[in-house]
């Protein structure tokens, strides 16, 4: 029983990080109908930015994170939208998808050139302490990551559903023309979505890099798992991203422990395929109709 709880808790912690990244997919899809396949690299880049501030500028982790957050908002949020998304989205989603795939390769190679292909250690924001709760051995980092990531995911959900700006963002996502008629600044709402996405990427980097270690290709696994999680939970539902992420994290651990570690990496893909075939809108998503 202790083992099961251990696996569940650790799975929630890992899954919550997938969920944070998956939220990026759902947010962009809901706000602007775009898919960003460079999302994994948008988590990797803040990790290396923080490493730069930590190692070269010798700043404390908190300051390094704040500076990275600002840089992410500017570059991965604002500039990404203005320089990549805006010029391409008018030609449809496919050119943008191809562009983000290209960006993904470009970001990886740029990082490789700048930092080498070596792997780097990264400090954790949580103390390196082990807690024993009735035989269940957990680290402060595991609990902290799960609580923080789930909290942020729920916070984003609250922001989208319970605030005027969040509801305006959803209105733009559902019908941009109708939203404009209602006086909503659609362009600004879409920009907000990109900014939130960039902030989530920086936070995900802060949480996952101490365990994943910083490497130019660290975004590959994370980006893929987040994409699966977003599809599984429902691409048009932010709560779905949280559910999908946690589900993937927990099931990976359970399959790894009770069936075979060899099948662990295939769990997300299997779930993804099942959802695509039997429930294409995802577990919490709504069927969408689009004019073609």
């Amino acid at each position: 029983m202790t083992d099961l709880l251990q696996l569940l808790l650790s799975g929630v912690s890992t899954g919550a990080c997938y969920a944070l990244a998956a939220l990026g997919f759902t947010l962009l899809w809901q706000a602007s109908g775009t898919i960003n396949f460079a999302l994994g690299e948008m988590v990797m880049l803040p990790a290396f930015m923080m490493l730069f501030f930590l190692n070269v500028a010798s700043l404390p982790l908190a300051v390094a994170f704040l500076l990275t957050l600002v840089a992410s908002l500017l570059v991965l949020g604002g500039m990404f939208k203005l320089l990549v998304v805006d010029p391409l989205i008018r030609h449809g989603v496919i050119p943008l998808v191809i562009a983000t795939l290209g960006l993904s390769i470009g970001f990886k190679n740029l990082t490789r050139v700048a930092y080498s292909a070596q792997v780097f250690t990264f400090p954790s924001i949580f103390p390196d302490r082990l807690i024993d709760i009735f035989g269940l051995r957990v680290t402060v980092a595991e609990i902290g990551t799960a609580v923080l990531a789930c909290g942020v995911a729920l916070g984003v959900q609250f922001f989208l559903n319970r605030t005027l700006t969040g509801r305006a963002m959803q209105a733009v996502a559902q019908n941009r023309d109708a939203a404009r008629v209602l006086g909503i600044n659609a362009n600004r709402m879409v920009m907000y979505a990109f900014l939130v996405n960039a902030a989530l990427a920086a936070l995900t980097a802060l949480l996952v890099t101490p365990v994943y270690l910083a490497k130019f290709d660290m975004g590959d696994t994370l980006g893929t798992k987040a994409f699966y999680a977003a599809i599984i939970g429902g691409f048009n539902n932010s709560r779905g991203a949280l559910l999908g992420g946690v589900l993937v994290g927990v099931l990976e651990n359970l399959v790894g422990a009770y069936i075979s570690p060899s099948y662990k990496e295939g769990v997300a893909l299997l779930l993804f395929l099942l959802v695509i075939v039997f429930m294409p809108q995802g577990l919490l998503g709504k069927p969408e109709e689009r004019r073609v």
Binding site: L7, T14, V211, N253, P261
Partner: peptide
């Protein structure tokens, strides 16, 4: 006897089985 994958990121399930 526990095989793991090259590039594996998360070892929780491996550790649980190894300790068990």
């Amino acid at each position: 006897d526990i095989p793991t994958e090259p590039g594996q990121m998360d070892y929780t399930s491996v550790v649980v089985n190894a300790v068990k």
